[in-house]
Design a protein around this nucleic acid. Sequence first.
DNA 1: ACCAATTAGCGTAGGCCATAAACAGTTGGG
DNA 2: CCCAACTGTTTATGGCCTACGCTAATTGGT
Lengths: 251, 251
Amino acid sequence: MPELPPGVDVLWGRREPAKRGPRPNLSIEQIVDAAIEIASAEGLGPLSMNRVAEKLGKSAMSLYRYVRTKDELLQVMTDVCAVKNAPPEPDDDAGWRPNLERWAYELVGLYRRFPWVLHVPLGPTPPVGPGQLTWLDRGLGCFRRTNVPSELRLGVVMLLLIFIRGQVRMAQEVNQGAAGAALGYPAYGEMLRLVVDKDQLPDLARLVDEGMFDDPEEGMSEQELDMEVRFGLTMIFDGIERLVAGYEEEQ
Amino acid sequence: MPELPPGVDVLWGRREPAKRGPRPNLSIEQIVDAAIEIASAEGLGPLSMNRVAEKLGKSAMSLYRYVRTKDELLQVMTDVCAVKNAPPEPDDDAGWRPNLERWAYELVGLYRRFPWVLHVPLGPTPPVGPGQLTWLDRGLGCFRRTNVPSELRLGVVMLLLIFIRGQVRMAQEVNQGAAGAALGYPAYGEMLRLVVDKDQLPDLARLVDEGMFDDPEEGMSEQELDMEVRFGLTMIFDGIERLVAGYEEEQ
DNA sequence: ACCAATTAGCGTAGGCCATAAACAGTTGGG
DNA sequence: CCCAACTGTTTATGGCCTACGCTAATTGGT
């Protein structure tokens, strides 16, 4: 059996319990839960091995009996997060589009509830944890009653995964900017007015003049965020629809 | 005049030169160039203030006369990168789609040439540097000869920015995985076969059986990468086309 | 001509961080 | 009972960013 990348054995419960030695006073679940709690409350920045251990009343080094490295902990955290927030089961009576739309908006909700997931650095391999693979599977499952070829299914689901990740992250960025505005920086629209030149950036200048960048700084409501996502997703789904039109319902 | 966020004054050349004191033996351009060189060659990980200073034959602390913080350096680096690789000028005789497609593929090329840009942490505000704003402007400019409303223009260009960022980053991830495969991990398809259960992840299992995850591990060629991007972009552009169809060429 | 103000570059040091290595205490198998 | 395995801790190393203070260079004002 070849060696698996870090964290995979943990996630799939393939780590054999120790036979000899003192009984563990800690568990991976506790560690991961504590880490998730910190990250959810304060972000990835303040998440250090020391903080996690402190929260558990243990020493920092004790964690390394359960986790090979901090990066492994991060990878496991993200997958556990996906396990605890499972994707919706596709409804075989509905069409692929409503199913996939529900899947997409659930994913948006997950990223919005756990923003730090978007900042976890990429692991040494593509995702192989049960959580992320389940999300992938349920996305693919939306095409179960169609004849869409496999490559297209994978392409479409990947496209959605990528876009949703990016979109929610961008929304975070804007919100973060609004927070910085409270710290003394001028609002985004204000700053653009200071630097955007009508001759050098004419098309952008027009939008700035129309005040298109003025409102979002006030801290977008969830509704507005939803709107942004909805816009992009609608466009993508329209594209998908044209692409898979020929294969639909040809059981 | 309100205080601008870090780096903006530098990028727009609004920092007044010192009147008194010894002449600077260094310049922001040199520092940024050196940093970009390091990041391009080895990535963001080995990029430390010490490395940059070392490359310039100076001490680490001397850099702080030109840059307020390391994060400011990173923000400036990304924008300078965008300045030196300017977007294409839209051709007023062509339609919006070919123009926007050229713009999109140029952006793909930029991210592929400077992968570290995708890993620069987000700044305290949305981008306000001349480089990034120029890219935004040229994207918007593709709709110059249409009547597409401003909100839609912005939405479309944002959608493309987000998707391209995510897609290229994902491609990097896969390539990185292939590199890790050389380090002893089994190939991605191999790993999936180890963990994917036919009962729990049926739709994914089918793709795994078909060998859909087997080839990309060999280190995708540029051609293949282009294919992946092209697939997603085609889908998006089809969606955009439907969305803006009503406004086209109604001068 | 000269002093005071300003600035460039550097050395030191402090406070974080991840983690390698050695050690003390606990447990089950032979 | 004793050894081997295992847990949790202590200690130590090396890296990082950067606050602070110093020296030396340069210039404006008088």
